[in-house]
Computed example of a mutant assay.
Amino acid sequence: MLRTLEPGQRCEVWIASVTGESEMVFSTDEVLLEAPNWTLDGRSLVLNGDGKLWTLDVSGGRLTEVPLTGVPDLNNDHVLAPGGTGIFLSANDGHIYRAPLDGGEGQRITDDDGSFHFLHGVSPDGGELAYVGIQAGDFTRPGRLMTIPSDGGTTAAVDVGPGHCDGPEYSPDGQWLYFNTESFSSLPGHAQLARVQVDGSGFERLLESVTVDWFPHLSPDGELACYIRFLTGTEGHPADLPVDVVLVSTGDWTAPLHTWPLFGGQGTLNVNSWSPDSARFAYVAYPLGNTDTPKDQVRD
């Protein structure tokens, strides 16, 4: 089901700097955009909205549809191929596709294996994808961390415990998968940040917190990471809530460097949105009416 804006709601695309500043580069009340990626030339963001793929010129604020064929309506899980000319896409039929970033025919990668496939990561060499598998599309079941060759083929499961996991993304050196998981807690929905080596060893928690933490994204140089933080007790990563976007050093996940409170959640930071120079990243807010998210609603 495609997401749309509520009456009086806006979609705002923001760019945050690692020095703490942020700038709104696009605002609309017509289309609900989600999950920005940053192109390798540093000029554009790639987002989904209304089931389609869009590019947003960072300097000019021009939104342009990417003309795709052979791909069903998209959801908010997409990542650029390392070469910068292709993109991997999750669609609402539960499959993963690859398509040219400038538009054209998409090719399905995943088989009809009885599960839904939600893409989140591509290895630095472009040879492998990491995704979350949901058996039979039954969202009462936990998501499982899975990998597949980027041109299709045999899938493999990575054991990260019994809890639901989401957002698996490769580290810049290709040695680790970073993600969030509920395997560390018995509290419903209490997602925490974690990583595991690509061979399945070294599974570890990155941060112990009372908040519900999702979607860790490493900068291209591996020095920094951003993630989205929900209030304690949140289950899943729902839309339209007060949340924080948090910036940390990968050397110390416990000490936020900067925090950006906003109204959002689903769609805000689902995929890696770092600029190629590791100096900025993008996120999306969805304010209602003329009010901003009160800062005291989002707690450490």
Rank of each mutant, 00 (worst) to 15 (best):
L2V: 07
T4I: 02
E12Q: 14
I15M: 12
V18A: 11
V18N: 04
G20Q: 11
S22G: 00
E34P: 00
P36C: 04
L40N: 10
V46F: 04
N48F: 01
D50W: 01
L53E: 10
W54S: 03
T55N: 11
L56T: 06
L63R: 03
L68H: 06
D77E: 14
G83A: 06
G86E: 15
F88E: 02
D93M: 07
G94V: 01
G103H: 12
G106E: 10
T110W: 03
H120G: 00
S123T: 06
P124V: 09
G126R: 08
V132H: 03
D138H: 12
D138Y: 13
F139A: 02
T140Q: 14
R141Q: 15
R144M: 11
T147M: 12
P149V: 12
S150M: 07
T154F: 00
T155H: 05
D159R: 09
G161D: 11
P162L: 10
P162T: 13
G163M: 11
E169R: 15
G174A: 12
F184Y: 15
P188A: 14
Q197D: 12
D199V: 06
F203I: 07
D213I: 02
C226K: 02
G233S: 05
T234I: 04
E235W: 00
G236F: 04
D240M: 05
L247V: 05
G251Y: 10
P256Q: 07
L257V: 08
H258D: 04
T259V: 15
N270H: 13
Y286P: 01
L288N: 06
N290D: 15
K295H: 14
